[in-house]
Amino acid sequence: MTLETVLLVAAALFSIGLYGAISQQVVVMVMMGLELMLNGVVLAAAGFWWFLSPAPDGQVLLLVVLTAMTVEMAMGFAVATLLHRSKQSDMTDMATDLAQ
């Protein structure tokens, strides 16, 4: 296990998540893609921390990334609820008027 291998796995997770976030139509599935991207970020940050500078600061950064995941989940579910209530749908294509 080296930094390169950890980063390669993290890059794979990030790219798979990116594919999902771009291609999926259901809001919850888009959120799953974003979560998978952040999963890769968590693994990469852990790899950097362990192999480059294992000081407590890096753990705090990971804690912040996990917080970002929580915020993303909470706001995503709230938007999904709002969309479902107003449009009776949970598809991203039905939410184009949110930009107006």
Partner: peptide
């Protein structure tokens, strides 16, 4: 989406290696 994700992986993997 597939092209973008594969491109992203190639760039990130190249950087990692």
């Amino acid at each position: 989406a597939l092209l973008v994700s594969i491109g992203t992986f190639v760039v990130l993997a190249a950087g990692a290696v």
